[in-house]
Write a protein that binds this DNA or RNA. Structure first.
Lengths: 189, 189
DNA sequence: GTCTATATTTTGATAGAC
DNA sequence: GTCTATCAAAATATAGAC
């Protein structure tokens, strides 16, 4: 991707994360890119197109990352560990984008909204299928699979809100806390 | 509280929840209240004052509700159950307000932001103290107390996002799922 | 307490030169 | 690929009549 088109995404991601999509203006994005606001429209058709791009690549990368981390893993319990670990790591390493993906859905056009929700459903289904298999096998607790999956995914997202790179705990430390907590909550005693 | 002042809050809460604070205009709020936008300013000094009012009463009510639900409860484990139950119920019963409280902090002035974060800290400390006592007593797992508390609080907030009143599960059903899942994750085996 | 009218600013987006 | 100039619409908020 050309240089400026990339830079616009990086700057917009930073601003959308800090101030929110609606509170961020095209001129602010342009200003931090060192160009005039009219020049933005050479690269993107609208402000919403920038938001959609962020959503789309974030969801694609998240799903690709999960599939890669599940490759060659055997056993339901280990699959679940790998899935939680993958989810947490991605959310901590791409904090700003995942925060936007979780909170700025309302800025999308109805068409784009539907596309992103479909991507999200695909991702969640991979996780839900693992939980489902564990419940059916009797090694996971007998609770509502959707509630369990949302609970686990959301508690991990929390990390992306308070995590500060370079702090007391590393990404791997935090990921393992969530893996242990989620698995302890899931496994029957 | 007088009639219209109340109605403005109810209408604004609904709009902020559905469209977000920045995407909602004063004229939309006024329109749904059946008055002109200028009349809003007789009741509130600014749009931000409306948002602050929502944040402030929601946090106060949340904390009051928790304290009431902990009254007379003995034992660390039962306190934790009561706390999670209280948290989930409040979030499901006051879905719109708690969603705003969790996602629209950035619309506040720096002064109001500091006040609301202080209220939130007070609330979290009550929960963290219970977890701390459980860890110290050796009945809860030996993990980072802040991570655990954020994980539990956030996973319950998730309910407020997807919960539809009148659906398959009642508020109490859902609360008990979260109580069991959180406690199972916390208790040492 | 609500109205009409308006001030002021800013927004997203477009046209056309270079 | 970036610029200047500009449009049209919408925003928050205020002034003053009733």
């Amino acid at each position: 991707m050309p240089h400026m088109k990339d830079k616009i995404i990086r700057v917009a991601t930073s601003l959308f994360h800090r101030k929110g999509y609606f509170a961020t203006s095209i001129s602010e994005i342009a200003g931090l890119c060192g160009i005039q606001k009219a020049s933005i429209y050479y690269h993107y058709a609208s402000k919403e197109a920038i938001l959609y791009q962020i959503h789309s690549t974030t969801m694609d990368d998240l799903t690709t990352y999960l599939k890669g981390n599940l490759q060659g893993v055997d056993g339901i319990e280990d699959c679940m560990r790998a899935a939680v670990r993958s989810h947490v790591r991605f959310h901590l390493e791409r904090q700003k984008e995942t925060f936007i993906a979780n909170t700025e859905l309302r800025g999308l056009t109805p068409e784009h909204y539907a596309l992103i929700v479909a991507k999200r459903d695909t991702y969640e289904q991979i996780i839900q299928e693992i939980i489902q298999r564990g419940c059916a096998a009797g090694i996971f607790v007998d609770e509502d699979v959707k509630i369990l999956s949302y609970a686990i995914l959301t508690q991990c997202n929390a990390g992306a809100i308070w995590y500060k790179p370079g702090g007391r705990l590393t990404v791997d430390d935090i990921a393992e806390v969530y893996v242990r907590f989620a698995l302890q909550g899931l496994m029957v005693r």
